[in-house]
Simulated assay, not measured.
Amino acid sequence: MKITITGGAGFIGGNLVRHLSRIPEFTEIRVVDDLSTGFEENLSGLPVRFFEGSVLDSGLLDLAFDGVDTIVHLAALPSVSRSVKDPVASHHANATGTLSVLEAARRAGGTRVIAASSSSVYGANPHIPKHEELRPVPMSPYAVSKLAGEAYLAAYHHCYGLPVLSFRFFNVFGPLQPAGHSYAAVIPAWITAAAAGRPLVVHGDGSQTRDFTYVGTVCQVLAQAALRKVSTPDPVNLAYGGRTSLMSLIAELELTLGTELRTEHQPNRPGDVRHSQADDTRLRNLFPEIEPTSLRNGLKRTVRWFLTQDG
């Protein structure tokens, strides 16, 4: 099976390439990435054909998609706070980028597209846990751009018969996740702060909750979806129903690191969702063979990786 991963030099993409390279059924792995948020070193030593460039480059996509069986579309401009600062850039990368990928898949003869959406689409809808039939109430331009991508996937299925699958990622964490920038996710930001002896910045009171998902589990699901050619126009939550407050996460980190951590509370950020937890019924029905890595074990693996990095 030949597969192309857009955004394959990023955090999730780099982990996915590693995972697929160990599965003999994947005979060729291609990566499209403009390296705006990814890093070529994430692919170092891995058996990939690398296409450097944007998913908005139709000619590049035609080359990268030619003859492949599945496209995993991970390329995006991540971060709610980044989208609040620059909503147009988020729209171009995420919504228009997804449309560009779908058009290229159609030109390639109707190639299967598995795409990353986001739990942020649920937004201000207060229902917990979040099931896929809930009305989306996006609170940020990032969430809107991801919801638009989902809608495009469904439309291309209905209009053109394109096999599609849209996963709503929740708070994915693990090795390769970048930490040293202002839009860093909370787990890598906190691990690097703890390692440097700095206080952990908590936006708000820390009682807000998240459904953290270890990247290895995400890669297992994506690989199985490609191998078994799973498709549905309806979105699927990719998380397993955990509900961890930020203060509880700090307690888990203290246990993992074996030290007490200092915190510094700052104001809430615009666009941030208060509570997030997945209903995993649809996911487990589609992928009953996969058992997720626990938050504790995922944190241990993640901390071990971060603490072995130079600098």
Results as ranks from 00 to 15, higher is better:
Ala124Cys: 10
Glu133Cys: 01
Ala154Tyr: 01
Ile128Trp: 01
Ser166Gln: 07
Ala195Asn: 07
Val137Ser: 11
Cys219Glu: 13
Val202Cys: 04
Ser118Val: 02
Ser166Cys: 14
Tyr156Ile: 04
Val201Glu: 13
Ser120Phe: 11
Val121Ser: 07
His127Met: 10
Gly110Glu: 07
Gly109Tyr: 11
Pro136Glu: 05
Pro188Ile: 06
Gly174His: 03
His131Ser: 11
Ala148Cys: 10
Lys146Tyr: 11
Ala148Trp: 05
Phe167Leu: 01
Ala194Gln: 02
Ala116Gly: 06
Gly204Glu: 02
Tyr156Lys: 05
Gly204Thr: 08
Pro178Phe: 11
Ala179Leu: 04
Ala115Ser: 15
Thr192Ala: 11
His181Phe: 14
Gly110Cys: 10
Pro141Lys: 00
Cys219Asp: 01
Val186Ala: 15
Leu162Phe: 02
Ala179Val: 10
Pro163Leu: 05
His127Trp: 08
Leu153Ile: 06
Ala115Gln: 14
Val113Pro: 09
Gly174Ile: 10
Leu222Thr: 13
Pro199Met: 06
Val202Arg: 04
His203Thr: 08
Arg106Gln: 08
Ala223Glu: 05
Asp211Gln: 01
Gly216His: 03
Gly110Val: 09
Ser182Ala: 14
Pro178Thr: 11
Ala155Gly: 02
Ser166Gly: 13
Ile191Glu: 00
Phe173Met: 06
Ala195Gln: 14
Ser166Asp: 06
Arg168Phe: 04
Arg112Gly: 13
Leu162Gly: 07
Ala225Ser: 12
Pro126Lys: 10
Gly161Asn: 02
Val164Gln: 00
Val221Arg: 04
Val101Gly: 08
Leu165Lys: 07
Gln208His: 12
Ser140Asn: 00
Leu222Cys: 03
Arg107His: 15
Ala179Ser: 15
Gly204Tyr: 08
Tyr156Thr: 03
Phe167Gly: 03
Gln208Trp: 04
Ser140Val: 09
Ser145Pro: 01
Pro178Val: 07
Trp190Lys: 06
Val144Phe: 01
Ser119Tyr: 14
Ala184Cys: 13
Gly206Leu: 08
Ala193Cys: 09
Lys130Cys: 12
Val144Pro: 00
Ile114Ala: 07
Asn171Ile: 08
Val218His: 03
Ser117Ile: 12
Asp211Thr: 03
Phe212Gly: 12
Lys146Thr: 08
Pro199Asn: 09
Pro175Glu: 04
Ser182His: 12
Ala151Lys: 09
Ser182Thr: 15
Ser117Gly: 15
Ala124Glu: 11
His203Gly: 02
Ile128Thr: 01
Gln224Thr: 11
Tyr122Ser: 13
His131Glu: 14
Ala196Trp: 06
Pro129Ala: 06
Tyr142Phe: 14
Ile191Val: 15
Arg107Phe: 12
Asp205Gln: 07
Cys219Pro: 01
Pro178Gly: 00
Asn125Met: 00
Tyr214Phe: 15
Gly204Asn: 06
Ala154Lys: 13
Phe173Ala: 13
Ala193Asp: 13
Tyr183Asn: 13
Val101Leu: 09
Ser182Phe: 06
Leu102Asn: 08
Val164His: 04
Val221Met: 14
Ser145His: 05
Met139Asn: 00
Lys130Met: 07
Ala116Pro: 13
Trp190Cys: 05
Thr111Pro: 09
Glu103Ile: 07
Tyr160Asn: 00
Leu165Trp: 12
Ala179Cys: 13
Phe173Thr: 12
Phe169Pro: 05
Gly149Ser: 02
Lys146Glu: 00
Val215Arg: 02
Pro163His: 08
His131Thr: 07
Gln177Glu: 15
